[in-house]
């Protein structure tokens, strides 16, 4: 039985225009909407699959403000059955602070008799993009960590994980407990069903406060890159633009064989 804990973060949906907060310490989500990153959605899917294959339970955790409940409920709607909310302003937490808080959750759950032997995270958060919380968490716990894999399975107390490395597809195999960080692409996150959503609403979320004061990120401030002036020449719309496109190809001399 493996009880995975999946760490997710409420992040702004960056497909919309990015606006900074007044203090330039974060992205103002009021105009953007919020989501969970694709890497973490895949981590949730993997966690749910591992739990069901081993007869365990998949739990989800986030450190975030009150609204982050929305992301926890989304994970509950697709198969997680327990959720923990460390209520805090994530902007004021650096990656080492987050790792310490997540480690405290793992330890407290073990004390309470519901140990996790697999912790899944995204490879990198969609907003801060620090590429390190999972690795720092592993050092906090004294566990090994596999980074940036897209497929994970558990059998006989061992985790097998694989992903694309620089020289080909790489496989890791190691005994649990372990921390694994996930890249999207290896599994297809499921969509929530109506009964799934109903069930998610009924789950009581464990709320807690941080175990220590954050040292904070090393951020000075955020800035927006200067907009690049556009000098694009629009050749047309749809299929009707084809002659103009081929004129351009001729002009650039790339059509001749």
């Amino acid at each position: 039985m493996t009880n995975p804990l999946i760490c997710i973060k409420r992040v702004v949906d960056a497909s919309s225009e990015v606006v900074l907060t007044e203090d330039a310490q974060g992205v103002d989500g009021r105009y953007a909407g919020f989501t969970t990153s694709a890497h973490e959605e895949c981590a949730v899917e993997i966690g749910v699959q591992v739990a069901s294959a081993t007869g365990g339970t998949a739990s989800v955790v986030t450190l975030g403000d009150a609204d982050a409940v929305e992301q926890l409920r989304s994970a509950l709607a697709v198969g997680c059955t327990a959720a923990t909310h460390v209520v805090a302003d994530p902007q004021t937490f650096g990656p080492a602070d987050v790792a310490r808080e997540l480690a405290a959750v793992v330890r407290d759950h073990e004390q309470a008799g519901t140990p996790h032997d697999l912790v899944l995270l995204g490879n990198d958060a969609a907003d801060s993009g620090d590429f390190q919380v999972g690795i720092r968490l592993a050092y906090e716990l004294g566990w090994p960590v596999v980074n940036g894999v897209s497929k994970v399975s558990v059998a006989d107390g061992e985790v097998t994980a694989s992903g694309d490395g620089p020289d080909g597809h790489e496989t890791y195999r190691l005994p649990l407990p372990a921390v694994v960080t996930v890249l999207e692409g290896g599994v297809e996150p499921r969509y929530p069903t109506v009964p799934g959503r109903m069930k998610a609403k009924k789950v009581e979320i464990e709320e807690r406060t941080p175990v220590s004061d954050p040292a904070g990120p090393s951020r000075v401030r955020l800035v927006l890159p200067p907009p690049s002036p556009s000098s694009v020449q629009v050749l047309g719309e749809g299929a009707a633009a084809a002659p103009a496109v081929v004129d351009l190809l001729e002009e650039l001399g790339v059509l001749a064989r």
Partner: peptide, 30 residues
């Protein structure tokens, strides 16, 4: 600390770097 995906560095003391965040939609001075 570690700064991932640095584009350039600023002053040496204190040592500051500028890096990509939010999928490149914003830059962070760190």
């Amino acid at each position: 600390p570690m700064a991932a995906n640095v584009l350039s560095f600023g002053g040496l003391s204190p040592f500051t770097v500028t890096r990509q965040v939010v999928g490149g939609a914003a830059l962070e001075e760190m």
